Amino acid sequence: ELIWEQYTVTLQKDSKRGFGIAVSGGRDNPHFENGETSIVISDVLPGGPADGLLQENDRVVMVNGTPMEDVLHSFAVQQLRKSGKVAAIVVKRPRK
């Protein structure tokens, strides 16, 4: 059984690379294997702001206090874009 651990990460936006993450998932883009609608970190740019803080497959729980459960992919992207220079991101990942 999976035990999820929650992490809060504060990312500083890089002028060229943004937050250095890509997200997939969302209500309109469920996971191809299990139908899960979570917003998921799909890519972490090496050397970017999120490197060492976020991991691929982290589930995004909140962005700047806005819940990311059962939202559209575009909504999640929009929340990240409009967060200015700093984003507080809450993620969960299975305990190893």
Rank of each mutant, 00 (worst) to 15 (best):
E1V: 05
E1T: 01
E1K: 15
E1S: 15
L2P: 05
L2S: 10
L2K: 07
I3V: 08
I3W: 10
I3T: 15
I3A: 08
W4Y: 13
W4R: 02
W4N: 07
W4E: 07
W4K: 04
E5I: 09
E5V: 08
E5D: 08
E5G: 07
E5R: 07
E5Q: 07
E5P: 04
Q6N: 15
Q6E: 15
Q6I: 09
Q6S: 12
Q6W: 05
Q6P: 08
Q6D: 15
Y7V: 15
Y7H: 11
Y7L: 12
Y7P: 01
Y7G: 06
Y7N: 14
T8S: 11
T8P: 07
T8E: 07
T8R: 08
T8F: 05
V9K: 03
T10K: 08
T10L: 06
T10G: 09
T10D: 12
L11M: 06
L11Q: 01
L11G: 02
L11N: 00
L11A: 01
L11T: 03
Q12F: 13
Q12W: 05
Q12C: 10
Q12D: 12
D14N: 04
D14M: 03
S15P: 14
K16Q: 06
K16A: 09
K16N: 13
K16M: 13
K16G: 13
R17L: 15
R17H: 15
R17I: 12
G18H: 06
G18P: 02
G18D: 14
F19K: 01
F19C: 04
F19M: 04
G20N: 02
G20A: 03
G20K: 00
G20W: 00
G20S: 00
I21Y: 01
I21V: 10
A22T: 13
A22M: 14
V23F: 15
V23R: 01
V23Q: 02
V23L: 14
V23G: 00
S24A: 15
S24T: 09
S24K: 12
G25L: 02
G25E: 04
G26I: 01
G26H: 03
G26D: 03
G26S: 03
R27A: 14
R27I: 13
R27Y: 10
D28G: 10
D28N: 06
D28R: 05
D28I: 03
D28W: 01
D28Y: 03
D28S: 04
D28V: 03
N29P: 03
N29A: 09
N29T: 07
N29Q: 14
N29C: 15
N29K: 15
P30N: 04
P30Y: 04
P30L: 06
P30G: 07
P30W: 05
P30E: 05
H31F: 06
F32K: 12
F32H: 13
F32V: 11
E33H: 11
E33G: 07
E33I: 09
E33A: 08
E33C: 05
N34C: 15
N34W: 06
N34L: 03
N34K: 15
N34E: 14
N34H: 07
N34Y: 05
G35Q: 10
E36Y: 02
E36H: 05
E36P: 04
E36A: 05
E36M: 08
E36T: 11
E36F: 04
T37M: 06
T37K: 14
T37D: 04
T37L: 07
S38E: 06
S38C: 04
S38P: 07
S38L: 01
S38F: 09
I39H: 03
I39C: 04
I39R: 02
V40R: 14
V40H: 04
V40L: 10
V40W: 15
V40G: 04
I41V: 14
I41S: 01
S42L: 05
S42P: 01
S42R: 08
D43H: 08
D43G: 06
D43E: 13
D43A: 07
D43S: 10
D43Q: 12
V44Y: 00
V44A: 01
V44T: 02
V44Q: 00
L45D: 15
L45C: 09
L45E: 04
L45Y: 12
P46E: 14
P46A: 14
P46S: 13
P46C: 08
G47Y: 05
G48Q: 03
G48Y: 02
G48D: 04
G48H: 03
P49V: 05
P49H: 02
A50I: 02
A50G: 08
A50R: 04
A50V: 00
A50Y: 00
D51E: 15
D51K: 07
D51N: 09
D51I: 05
D51P: 00
D51Q: 07
D51G: 05
G52T: 06
G52S: 06
G52K: 06
G52E: 05
G52W: 02
L53T: 07
L53G: 03
L53I: 13
L53F: 11
L54Q: 01
Q55V: 06
Q55D: 05
N57M: 12
N57Q: 13
N57G: 12
N57R: 10
D58T: 00
D58P: 01
D58M: 02
D58V: 01
R59Q: 12
R59F: 03
R59P: 00
R59W: 07
V60H: 00
V60R: 00
V60Q: 03
V60L: 10
V61P: 00
V61Q: 08
M62I: 06
V63L: 15
V63F: 12
V63R: 00
N64S: 03
N64T: 01
N64V: 00
N64R: 02
N64D: 12
G65I: 02
G65E: 13
G65N: 04
T66Q: 13
T66F: 09
T66E: 14
P67K: 13
M68E: 00
M68W: 10
M68Y: 06
M68R: 00
E69W: 07
E69Q: 14
E69M: 15
D70I: 00
D70N: 13
D70R: 06
D70P: 02
D70M: 06
D70Y: 08
D70C: 10
V71C: 09
V71Q: 13
V71T: 05
V71S: 09
V71I: 04
L72C: 09
L72Y: 12
L72G: 14
H73G: 07
H73K: 13
H73L: 12
S74G: 12
S74F: 07
F75L: 04
F75N: 06
F75H: 09
F75I: 05
A76V: 06
A76W: 04
A76Q: 00
V77Y: 09
V77K: 14
Q78M: 07
Q78I: 08
Q78W: 07
Q78L: 09
Q78R: 12
Q79F: 11
Q79L: 10
Q79H: 13
L80D: 00
L80A: 01
L80W: 03
L80K: 00
L80P: 02
L80E: 00
R81C: 14
R81M: 12
R81Y: 15
K82S: 10
K82W: 07
S83R: 06
S83Q: 08
S83V: 10
S83M: 06
G84W: 07
G84S: 13
G84M: 09
G84N: 12
G84D: 13
K85S: 09
K85R: 14
K85D: 12
K85A: 07
K85Y: 10
K85M: 13
V86L: 13
V86Y: 11
V86M: 14
V86N: 11
V86H: 12
A87I: 11
A87S: 09
A87M: 14
A87Q: 01
A88K: 14
A88Q: 11
I89S: 01
I89P: 01
V90I: 10
V90P: 00
V90T: 13
V90E: 12
V90F: 03
V90N: 06
V90G: 05
V90S: 10
K92C: 06
K92V: 06
K92S: 11
K92Q: 13
K92H: 08
K92R: 10
R93F: 00
R93L: 01
R93P: 01
P94E: 10
P94G: 12
R95E: 13
R95S: 11
R95T: 08
R95A: 11
K96G: 05
K96C: 12
K96T: 09
K96E: 05
K96M: 06
